Simulated scan of single mutants.
Amino acid sequence: MAHRMSVIAVPDAELDELRARLRHTRWPTRWPGPRWQAGTDIDELQRLVDYWSSSYDWRSHEAAVNALPWHTADIAGTPVRYLRFDADRPDALPIVLTNGWPSTFLELIPLARRLATPSAYSNDDADAFTVIVPSLPGFPFSPARPSLEQPLQTHEIWHDLMQTVLGFTRYAAHGSDLGAGITSRLGGAHPEALVGIHLTAVASPSDATDVTIEEQTYLDSVARWSADEGGYQHQQSTKPLTLSYGLADSPAALLAWMLEKYRAWSDCGGNVSARFGDDFLLTQASLYWFTGAISTSFRPYYEYAQGLTRRVERVDVPTAVALFPADLTQPPRSWAQRIYHVTRYTRMPRGGHFPAYEEPDLLANDLTEFFRDHRS
Rank of each mutant, 00 (worst) to 15 (best):
R314D: 06
T283G: 05
V195G: 08
A227S: 08
T212Q: 01
T238D: 10
L259F: 05
Q284S: 10
L186Q: 05
I213T: 15
Y218S: 01
A248T: 11
I294G: 05
A305N: 11
E313Y: 04
Y304S: 09
T209D: 01
D228S: 04
E303H: 14
S184D: 03
G307I: 01
T296W: 01
L194Q: 01
L255C: 05
G277W: 14
L186C: 04
Q216G: 08
S221N: 02
G292F: 07
S250W: 15
L323G: 06
A293P: 14
A252L: 03
G231K: 06
Y232A: 04
Y288Q: 07
R311W: 03
E313S: 14
S297I: 09
G246P: 15
A274D: 13
A180C: 07
A208C: 11
L199C: 08
L186V: 04
A193S: 11
Y245S: 08
D210C: 05
L259W: 07
A285W: 01
V222W: 01
E303V: 06
I197H: 03
S237Y: 12
G230L: 02
G277A: 14
E192I: 13
W265T: 02
Y301C: 01
D249C: 06
A253E: 12
W257A: 00
A256K: 04
L287R: 03
V195D: 06
R311Y: 05
Y304I: 00
S204K: 10
N271C: 13
K261I: 00
A227H: 03
D207S: 13
G246R: 06
P318Q: 08
T283D: 04
F290P: 12
A320L: 03
G187Q: 11
G187D: 07
A274T: 10
L281V: 11
Q216F: 06
D220K: 02
A227K: 02
I294Q: 05
L259C: 03
A252S: 15
Q233T: 12
A320P: 07
Q236C: 05
R263P: 10
H198W: 07
F324V: 02
T183N: 02
V211P: 00
G277R: 15
Y302F: 15
G230Y: 01
Y301E: 02
G307M: 01
L241M: 13
A322T: 15
G181N: 13
A322G: 00
T217C: 11
C268T: 12
I197G: 03
R275N: 07
A264C: 04
A180Q: 11
W265M: 05
D207G: 07
Y304R: 14
D228A: 07
A274F: 12
A293M: 10
A285K: 10
E214V: 08
L186H: 07
Y232C: 00
I294Y: 09
S237A: 14
A189M: 05
D210W: 09
E215L: 02
L254S: 10
I197V: 09
N271M: 14
P191D: 05
S250M: 14
L323M: 12
P300K: 06
H234L: 12
V222K: 02
E260I: 00
A208T: 14
W225N: 03
E229W: 01
I294T: 08
V312H: 15
E303C: 09
A252V: 13
E313K: 14
W225I: 00
L199V: 11
S221D: 01
F280C: 05
S221H: 00
S244V: 06
R275D: 03
E214D: 13
S237E: 00
